Amino acid sequence: MYNYKNSYQPVLPCVNKYLQYRWDKNCYEMHRNKVKSAKPTINTTPPKTYNHLLVKLKKRQLEEERVSRIKRENHMLLDKMSHIMQTGGGVDCRNDYVKKSLGSEKRQLELLRITKENQCLLQRLSSCGPRYSVQVWHEQWLRNLQLMETIGRYPRQYTAQTKSEHKVTSSEDED
């Protein structure tokens, strides 16, 4: 075994190497013990479980309400079935209900009023005569044509003749 005491060189100046060696060795041993007994800084333990999170009272209450509602409905159904069994279960298929609208009378009156107004309007339109005369319109149109011929630079017959001649010459050119 190698003797460390003889080869020990203290870092700081000292009077006695042996004592310094023992003190340093003691400090080192204390340090090693502290390192071994040190607790981890990160908590890796599972979190606490609380009873109110495991029991879930609201869910249990809703389930109980649902079960009680189902029981009540089953009981009502059983009562109805027993009543049917006791009375013979006759079926009433008569339906005397007549559909009735709340505003049907008002709509009928409104429809009658509109129909009467339309008939009066039709009577007035068919009884009155026309205000414009087709004969007067035709006479005015002929007068306008005469004015256009006198105002125009070229007479109307002249332009009609040149157009017809132009068509004839263009058709001959094509042949």
Rank of each mutant, 00 (worst) to 15 (best):
Y21S: 05
R22A: 09
W23A: 04
W23V: 11
W23E: 10
K25F: 06
C27S: 14
C27N: 14
Y28G: 15
Y28V: 09
R32M: 11
R32D: 08
N33W: 02
V35C: 10
K36T: 06
K36R: 08
A38P: 08
K39R: 06
K39T: 08
P40V: 13
I42R: 03
T44V: 11
T44F: 05
T45Q: 07
P46R: 06
Y50A: 10
N51P: 10
L53K: 12
V55N: 05
V55K: 09
V55W: 03
K56D: 06
K56M: 02
L57R: 06
L57P: 06
K58H: 04
R60H: 07
R60I: 11
L62I: 11
E63S: 03
E64S: 13
E64A: 15
V67A: 05
V67W: 10
V67D: 06
V67E: 09
S68W: 14
R69M: 14
R69V: 15
R72Y: 15
R72V: 00
E73W: 13
E73Q: 09
N74L: 12
L77T: 04
L78S: 11
S82K: 13
S82G: 03
S82A: 10
M85K: 03
M85P: 00
M85S: 04
Q86F: 03
T87D: 02
T87S: 02
G89H: 02
G89E: 02
G90Y: 12
V91D: 01
D92R: 14
D92H: 13
N95G: 03
V98I: 13
K99S: 05
S101R: 07
L102D: 14
E105H: 05
E105C: 01
R107G: 03
E110D: 06
L111K: 03
L112I: 14
I114C: 01
T115C: 04
T115D: 04
N118W: 10
L121F: 00
Q123I: 07
Q123P: 00
R124W: 00
R124P: 00
L125E: 11
L125F: 10
S126E: 12
S126G: 03
S127H: 11
G129S: 10
P130L: 07
P130I: 02
P130E: 13
R131G: 09
S133P: 05
S133D: 11
V134F: 06
Q135Y: 11
V136S: 15
W137Q: 12
H138N: 12
H138V: 06
E139M: 09
E139I: 08
R143N: 08
R143H: 04
R143K: 13
R143Q: 15
L147F: 04
T150A: 13
T150N: 13
I151P: 04
G152L: 15
G152P: 13
Y154N: 07
P155A: 06
P155S: 05
R156T: 08
Q157L: 13
Y158W: 00
